[in-house]
Nucleic acid binder design. Structure first.
Length: 802
DNA sequence: GTAGCCAGAGTTTTT
DNA sequence: CTCTGGCTAC
């Protein structure tokens, strides 16, 4: 076992505690009394209940600085965990800024998962792993489970692997090993869940791999079964801090309780009103129970809000008041009144998108009589990602720049995952899952049969798939074109693997333990850089060529992504370092070219703030979501309500809530009632914009479309929210006449394309221009059909080889 | 091995 | 409606 002196040296504390002890504490003057109490209460358990926009991160980072400054702890003796890399990065940056120096000495400030990887690498052998284990992502996980399911002859149509993955995840979230799964869960996955879970864990061990859930679970297991290890860490981490405590699951809770169990110097920061991840295992109970778990805990409430106007806060408070299980906080602010929360109803989803597009334009120009608001300062927050479609379509047509946050992540894309599988096989030849992925990508004529032969050979000899393939080739077990291709692949992989290191320069007996395990052999510098190697690898394997020959509209984008991947490699020492980074960090670095309005889900918006926020789709069934209410009843509804609270509190100045009476769902028109949350908005703080008559007051069009009939079917009039809305229809509140929308478009610009020209569009792919209207072109896309788009989103593509 | 067809599904998501 | 996965036919 490694000693803690070693740990100290290994992690390298760069800040001398003594040097800092005498420093003044000007940072305390920046805090309000509550924040200050949270920062200065250093000993014992502290629960910091921090409402939205109350300076939680500031308090947390100042607390770290204060610990360092008062010499209570050295930087590497503070454990500070967050959920996202973004939050961890922000905290690091802010601590560094306050200290006026970088914080390399804070190795234990990170996400739950990254901290667990560090711990697990040091103690892997205690759970039967080697310290260089690989971390599987969801995709690998599913593929592995599929194999097990197939071997068990289970119909994976009726019992999808995804479902099993979900079940296993939920057990891991609750810290159940296969042996601990409660009998009440025995029926999971058609009574085969527990057995398959055990098989899966066994297989992971064989592969020397872990999934995300294991990172926590294994560490908890180690702590529970090796008290000596636990005690060392309890002593080492003198202070423990946790961000977003309301989002912790049972495994994380146990982990924290074990680590802080000695001195109980734990400070948990959270907001029970912003707990929105119950569906993925988070337990609000953890925060509600804190004072029971840690008797004598100091509870600090941060209630002064520095973000939003009083109207916005009042609206948010009104909604969240409908929840029962709350610790209770009352947000207040010194800010000026500002505008009321605006509420508007629309006929359908498309009109909602159109109206919001116009509003955004008006805000941007300052036509509404306020300061011009930049697109970067505006966001549309939706409940479900499919709601984004309507906005994307609309914004594409009117040429409004937007960015979607939290879409498909860079590292989850097919081509990136393929490329990374190549990196993986080359850096660790025994990575079977990676080998499986690339063995026939690009196509090498190695189908099911050839792969089965490789599998069987490998299993018979008890070696990795790559070794199995080598043997199969030698034995001539795979014939014809496939055999030749496989021989070539095996040779190439071996050659590339050799290129990851330089020549052997010495055998080193007492090498320092590092994450790769104790090296016995020292190698000189590789002859080529890892960036060059990556490039060679992708080119020589034929992977780049594969996409160059691909004529689908996505291919150019994929090549672009591969290029970007190679570029990013430059920031790392070697391929291993890069892979380690990627397995834990799924960030999508947004290219920040120009102001854009953000579109994202409410979940993705947590922790963000915008001067102007649009909250569309407030209809019962969509928001609150029907499924959520069906599955978890009142609990689900309360979580939805917290989601509404999170949404409203993202807004600083202008918050606009809207709903549509009709929406196309799966191609079918469906009507809905305004959300029950609308009824919960306190009247005094809401400005109703919906024009009277939008919903038709008595027809006049005969049977020309049955609009009135549909509306009355929708029972819009029976909703209390709607009645109140009608009652309040004021002298003002006229929605913009529909014709107004044309004025938004700048007609000066003229399309530079010609009818018949072949063009490329980022989203729709290739197509042919069929009509030109001002700056817009009607294009018949090969994949997406006929669409009208603004020319600036098109590029000429005569140069494409066909 | 691949194109093309059909059936089925279709919240929220980080690590 | 629109995407995915799996299967069939070449």
């Amino acid at each position: 076992m490694s000693s803690f002196d070693e740990m100290d040296a290994f992690e390298g504390a760069s800040l001398s505690a003594r040097a800092m002890a005498a420093r003044p504490m000007p940072y305390l003057d920046d805090l309000n009394p509550e924040q200050r109490r949270a920062v200065e209460t250093l000993d014992g358990p502290v629960l910091m209940l921090a409402g939205a926009g109350t300076g939680k991160t500031k308090a947390l980072t100042t607390r770290i600085v204060h610990l360092l400054n008062t010499a209570r702890a050295r930087p590497n003796e503070i454990l500070a965990v967050t959920f996202t890399n973004k939050a961890a990065r922000e905290m690091k940056e802010r601590v560094a800024r306050m200290l006026g120096q970088p914080v390399e000495g804070m190795p234990w400030l990170g996400t739950f998962h990254s901290v667990c990887v560090k711990l697990l690498r040091r103690h892997a052998e205690l759970v039967g792993l080697k310290s260089n284990f690989t971390i599987l992502d969801t995709d690998d996980q599913i593929r592995l489970l599929k194999q097990l399911i197939k071997a068990e002859q289970i119909d994976d149509k009726r019992w999808p692997a995804r479902q099993l993955a979900g079940v296993i995840d939920s057990w891991k979230n609750r810290a159940f090993t296969p042996a601990n799964v409660p009998t009440s869960d025995a029926g999971a996955y058609n009574y085969r869940g527990v057995d398959l879970y055990a098989q899966y864990q066994a297989r992971l061990k064989e592969l020397n791999a872990v999934d995300f859930g294991d990172l926590l679970l294994h560490v908890v297991t180690i702590f529970q079964t090796h008290s000596d290890v636990l005690e060392q860490y309890q002593r080492w981490f003198r202070y423990v801090m946790v961000d977003e405590y309301q989002d912790t699951n049972v495994a994380q809770y146990l982990w924290l309780r074990l680590l802080a169990g000695g001195h109980k110097n734990i400070c948990c920061v959270g907001d029970d009103d912003q707990s929105i991840y119950g569906w993925r295992g988070a337990e609000v109970g953890n925060i509600l129970r804190f004072e029971k778990d840690f008797p004598g805990a100091h509870v600090v409430r941060l209630e002064q809000n520095y973000r939003s106007t009083p109207h916005i806060l009042a609206a948010a408070s009104g909604v969240i008041a409908g929840n029962s299980d709350r610790l209770g906080k009352t947000l207040w602010t010194e800010a000026e009144d500002g505008e009321q929360v605006r509420l508007i109803g629309h006929w359908d989803g498309e009109e909602e998108a159109r109206w919001i597009g116009e509003e955004i334009d008006a805000l941007q120009r300052g036509t509404r009589g306020q300061r011009p608001v930049s697109l970067d300062e505006m966001a549309i927050l939706v409940r479900a990602s499919h709601q984004m479609r309507a906005f994307e379509d609309r914004f594409l047509t009117i040429g409004l720049p937007y960015r979607v946050i939290g879409g498909p992540r860079f590292y989850e894309r097919l081509e990136i995952r393929d490329a990374m599988a190549y990196f993986r096989v080359v850096t660790s030849p025994e990575d079977d899952l990676a080998f499986e992925r690339i063995v026939n990508t690009p196509k090498r004529g190695l189908g099911d049969k050839a792969q089965q032969t490789i599998q069987m050979t490998a299993r018979a000899h008890g070696v990795s798939l790559l070794e199995g393939a080598r043997i199969a080739v030698q034995d001539g077990a795979i014939k014809g074109k496939g055999g030749a291709a496989l021989r070539r692949l095996v040779e190439d992989l071996t050659r590339w693997n050799g290129m990851t290191r330089g020549p052997v320069v010495q055998i080193d007996e007492d090498a320092v333990l590092d994450d790769g395990g104790p090296p016995q052999v020292r190698f000189g510098e590789p002859e080529i850089s890892h960036v060059e190697l990556a490039q060679i690898l992708l080119d020589e394997s034929g992977y780049t060529g594969h996409w160059q020959n691909d004529k689908t509209p996505e291919a150019p984008g994929r090549l672009e992504n591969l290029k970007e991947l190679v570029n990013q490699l430059d920031n790392f020492e070697n391929l291993q370092g890069f892979l380690e980074h990627v397995s834990l960090i799924m960030d999508n670095e947004q290219s920040d070219d120009g102001a854009k309005v953000s579109i994202m889900t409410l979940h993705a918006a947590k922790g963000l703030e915008f001067p102007a926020v649009f909250l569309p789709g407030w209809e019962d069934g969509l928001f609150p979501s029907q499924r959520s209410m069906d599955e978890t009843g009142l609990k689900g509804l309360e979580e939805e309500r917290r989601l509404a609270y999170v949404g409203i509190t993202r807004a600083e100045e202008i918050c606009t809530i809207s709903f549509a009476a009709n929406r196309r769902v799966f191609g079918q028109w469906q009507n809905a009632l305004p959300s029950r949350f609308i009824d919960e908005l306190p009247e005094a703080h809401v400005d109703v914009l919906t024009p009277p008559g939008l919903y038709g007051s008595g027809g006049g069009y005969g049977d020309s479309g049955g609009l009135e009939a549909r509306v009355s079917e929708a029972n819009v009039y029976n909703s209390p929210g709607w009645k109140r809305l009608q009652a309040r229809q004021g002298q003002r509140g006229m929605a913009q006449p529909k014709e107004a929308r044309n004025s938004v478009i700048d007609l000066k610009a003229v399309s530079s394309f010609m009818v018949g020209e072949r063009v490329f569009h980022q989203k729709f792919g290739y197509g042919e221009v069929v009509d030109i209207e001002g700056d817009k072109a009607e294009v018949n896309f090969e994949k997406a059909g006929v669409k009208k788009v603004v020319s600036k989103f098109l590029s000429a593509k005569d140069d494409v080889p066909f």
